[in-house]
Amino acid sequence: MACHMTAGATPLMNAHDTPGDALVDHARLAHELEALHPHCFGWAMACCERQRDVAEDVLHDVYVKVLEGSARFDGRSTLKTWLFGVIRRTASSHGRRERLRAVLGMREVSRTDRPPAASPADEAERGDRVARTRHALTRLSARQRQVLELVFYHDLTIEEAAAIMNVSVGSARVHYHRAKARMATLLFGDRP
């Protein structure tokens, strides 16, 4: 998997001759991140069991890591694939930290600045279908959920999904087929 947290020459973060070059590269990197932000948000939601606050915290950590240079893109894959790997690992360590906090009784202050989205009557059915999809995803294992999201939601290949998930292509393929069969049963029953 082309994902490294080490220093080195990168297409986006080269050694800079002047402070001005560094600023230009930083701005360019921020621009690239912003362009990928919708994809990153969707993937962060998938990695954080669709908990929006957690997903935003994870994304914040990832963006800071990338912009401050502690996570560096080495150009061996697409920026999107590399970024998804960083998001997956950050979400994983965030989850471990949250579980430890829960055991120790340390809780974050809940955010109350975001009212729930209004659901108009004409979107009730659509909302119901989305809720069913979300619920079905929770019934899958983490690997199965991730491979389905990467293939169906982000339009990636199984090979790219394997690289992001840091598993072999064969393993990703097995997860994909099992997940797809299970998801079809959960969403459509026996008859699609």
Binding site: P38, G42, M45, E56, H60, Y63, R129, T133, R134
Partner: peptide, 22 residues
Amino acid sequence: AFEQLKSEDARELPPFSDVLER
């Protein structure tokens, strides 16, 4: 089904600057 999920997420997408300054 995933397309619907995607468009639902897009509707709730927080601005990039908000996430960065979070």
